[in-house]
Every structure is written in structure tokens, then in C-alpha cells.
Simulated assay, not measured.
Amino acid sequence: MFLAAAIQISSTTDVGRNLATIEALVDRAAGYGAKFVATPENSNFLGQADEKVRLAESFDGPTCRRFADLAKRHGIHLLLGSFNERGTSPERCRNTSVLFGPDGSRLAVYRKIHLFDVDHSEAVRAMESRTIESGDEHVVAETALGNFGLSVCYDLRFGDQYRRLVRMGADVICVPAAFTARTGRDHWSELLRARAIECQSFVIAPAQYGRHGEAELRESYGRAMIVDPWGVVLATAPDVAEGLALAEIDLSRVAEIRRAIPVGKYAST
């Protein structure tokens, strides 16, 4: 059993401020005893897409170095929900999630597979594929705490990805996100609970909230949360404030539910 924390922040174009805010929240979570801490999508920068590409970093850049140092300082598993990793061309970057171990080592890397290309309304319109390279690898990180299936935001709508992560051994699903306010009101908690129930896994979902300092940017929904494998919401961050969702993760609960309702035996390989 271990304590997990899902961070909620409102990142902007001010990278220094974003990272300082995250560091303070990681410090707080570790002070409560959290051994696994996760930050949202676009943790280090949330702004115009072209600027996101211009500021893209490598794994040796300041964002990953700072997260590695934080993980090592507190002796925790720390998930960088996503950052703008430098791509294979100057025109695009990657939306990349990185898990760091208690010694600061890089344990796993996941690049967002499903890109947010939608045209719902003026408030929900995006073409992420214009500036983001899609990933093509499903990732489960095996750690001393348990097996963590990695995903990012829009992936949440694609249940087959999560069922595949379970077949790969995931006990806990991570969904760092910057879900839009418009879709989040009706879909965020419902989809998180659905993934938890169908995968019979814990779901840890750190989140962005608010307008991110620029009127032209879409508003994020917030409500970072942790859900148990029965679909019960164990913890939720406040709607419009930076903070934490904290909950105990007991993996014997995963085994108990999977044994009682063995839906996995019908899963395709």
C-alpha cells in the first residue's frame, strides 16, 4: 500500500513559475507521505502551439533535470505528466510523459498516441497534429510500487488502449490531462470511472484547470482525481485552485476485484 498524489495546477507560458509551483506541490505531497506523485499534461508550458514547439526540450533539458532532482530529493516515484519534447523536425514536438524513480533515474517514457484534433465549437477547437508528433508505443512501467500504465489526456476516450495496458500488466492507470472545460463538465469523471471499472485498475488523473493566463487559450476543467478499481472516486481536487488529490493505493484491491469479476478472461490478446 502507498499514498499517491495527483497534482492540479494552472500552467501558463511562464515556465519558471510553472515549475516553481509544481515543486512546491511535490514538496507538500511528499511531506504528507506520498510515494507516487503525478503532474498534469503540459506541466512546464501551456500556451500557443508554435511557441510550445519553439521551446521544446530534450530529456537533458531543464524540465526533466528538475523533475529528476525532485524525485531523488524526496525518494519518490514522480510522473511528469507531459512536457514538450523536441521532435524529429523543427516544425513539431512531442507530448511526452516521463516517470522518474526514487533515485532520479528515468524509468519510462510515453509519447501521446491520440492527438486532440477536434472541431466541436468555438470553445473546443484544436488541431494538435499540426504541431505534435504522435507516439506509437503503449507503455507499462514496472516499479517497486506496482505496474503503471501510461497515457495522456485525449487517450482517455479510447478504451482499447487501456485494455491493452491491462493485458501488459498495468495495475494503475495514469491519465495526466488538460481536459477542456466544455467537455470536462460532462465527460471527465465519467470516462475516468469507466476506465477504472472496465480495467479493474486504480486511475490517477492529475489535471490542469482555468484559463492559463491568456484569453485566447481554451479553459481547462480541473478536478484532478484518483479512482479505485470499483469506480469509486477516492479523492478530488477543488474546482478552481491549485492543490492535490491524495489517496491510498492498495493493489490487493485490484487482485480482489479481478478475481471476483474475471472479465479479463474474455480479453483478446
Rank of each mutant, 00 (worst) to 15 (best):
134 S>F: 11
262 P>H: 10
124 V>T: 14
92 R>V: 04
9 I>H: 08
162 Y>V: 08
93 C>G: 05
157 R>C: 07
83 F>Q: 01
37 V>M: 08
166 V>Q: 13
206 P>R: 00
64 C>F: 01
158 F>S: 08
139 V>Q: 06
218 R>N: 07
221 Y>D: 03
243 G>T: 05
146 G>I: 02
143 T>E: 04
99 L>C: 09
83 F>R: 05
93 C>H: 03
209 Y>A: 07
159 G>V: 09
11 S>V: 05
231 G>T: 09
108 A>C: 05
155 D>I: 02
140 V>C: 08
30 A>Y: 02
245 A>L: 03
235 A>D: 02
16 G>W: 08
72 K>E: 03
137 E>M: 04
217 L>T: 06
180 T>P: 14
100 F>C: 11
69 D>K: 15
257 I>S: 01
166 V>C: 13
264 G>Q: 06
185 R>P: 00
82 S>R: 07
218 R>W: 11
184 G>W: 11
210 G>D: 08
38 A>I: 01
112 K>W: 13
124 V>H: 13
172 V>E: 08
45 F>V: 04
258 R>E: 00
157 R>V: 06
97 S>Q: 12
262 P>R: 07
257 I>C: 02
213 G>S: 13
197 I>L: 14
166 V>K: 15
92 R>P: 06
166 V>D: 09
174 C>Q: 07
250 D>G: 04
77 H>A: 09
191 L>N: 15
144 A>Y: 04
141 A>L: 00
194 A>W: 13
120 H>L: 15
98 V>L: 10
203 V>E: 00
97 S>F: 11
242 E>C: 04
254 V>G: 07
35 K>C: 00
157 R>T: 04
158 F>A: 08
43 S>E: 02
13 T>Y: 02
128 E>T: 03
63 T>V: 14
181 A>P: 08
247 A>F: 03
145 L>W: 02
71 A>F: 01
95 N>H: 06
89 S>F: 05
239 D>H: 14
137 E>G: 00
215 A>R: 11
233 V>I: 15
213 G>H: 05
9 I>G: 11
88 T>R: 14
225 M>I: 01
12 T>D: 05
267 A>P: 01
218 R>C: 09
225 M>E: 10
41 E>S: 14
104 G>C: 06
116 F>H: 14
